[in-house]
Simulated assay, not measured.
Amino acid sequence: MLEITTWTLSLALMLIGVAGVVVPLLPGTTLILVAAILHKLLLPADLSWLAIGLIAVFWAASIVADIGGVMVGTRWFGGSKWGMAGASGGALVGVFFSLPALVLGTVFGAILAEKLLANKTDAEALKSGVGAAAGFVISTIARLACAFVMIALFLIATLSGVRA
Rank of each mutant, 00 (worst) to 15 (best):
L117C: 14
T5L: 12
G28Q: 01
R75T: 10
S128Y: 01
W76A: 11
G161D: 03
A145S: 13
V137R: 12
L104M: 15
G78W: 03
L117R: 15
A164K: 02
V95P: 08
A19P: 00
F96V: 09
W82S: 14
L42Y: 05
S48Y: 00
A87K: 12
L92P: 04
T74K: 09
P100Q: 13
I141N: 02
T8K: 01
V57D: 08
L9W: 04
I16C: 00
E114M: 04
T158I: 06
A142P: 02
A123F: 13
I63H: 02
L102P: 10
T121E: 11
A35E: 03
V22D: 01
G89L: 14
P100H: 13
M1E: 12
F154E: 08
A19H: 00
M71F: 05
W7R: 01
G79W: 10
L25T: 10
A45D: 11
K40H: 05
L54S: 04
S10L: 05
L42V: 04
L26I: 12
L26S: 03
L104Y: 14
T30I: 06
A65Q: 07
S48C: 00
I16L: 07
E114R: 07
A132D: 15
V34S: 00
P44R: 02
L159P: 00
A85G: 13
A101L: 15
R163M: 12
I156R: 07
A145Y: 07
L144M: 15
G86Q: 08
A19F: 01
F96P: 06
I67R: 07
A51R: 08
F148A: 04
G89H: 11
R163T: 09
T140W: 12
L13C: 01
A61H: 06
V103K: 11
A133V: 15
L104G: 14
G17W: 04
K127H: 13
H39F: 09
I37C: 00
M14T: 00
A36D: 04
S80L: 11
A12W: 03
S62R: 07
S10D: 05
S88M: 14
V22S: 08
G89D: 11
A157C: 03
C146W: 05
S10Y: 00
A91V: 02
V107I: 15
A134Q: 14
A61C: 13
I138W: 13
T140G: 15
L47F: 06
W7L: 01
T6K: 03
G109W: 13
I151M: 13
T106Q: 14
D46C: 02
P24N: 07
P44M: 02
T106R: 14
F58P: 03
L112D: 12
A133I: 14
L117A: 15
T30P: 00
W76M: 14
F96E: 11
A118S: 15
M71H: 06
G69K: 07
G69P: 01
L11M: 06
I4G: 01
W59E: 10
S160L: 03
G78T: 05
I67E: 04
L43P: 01
A35M: 03
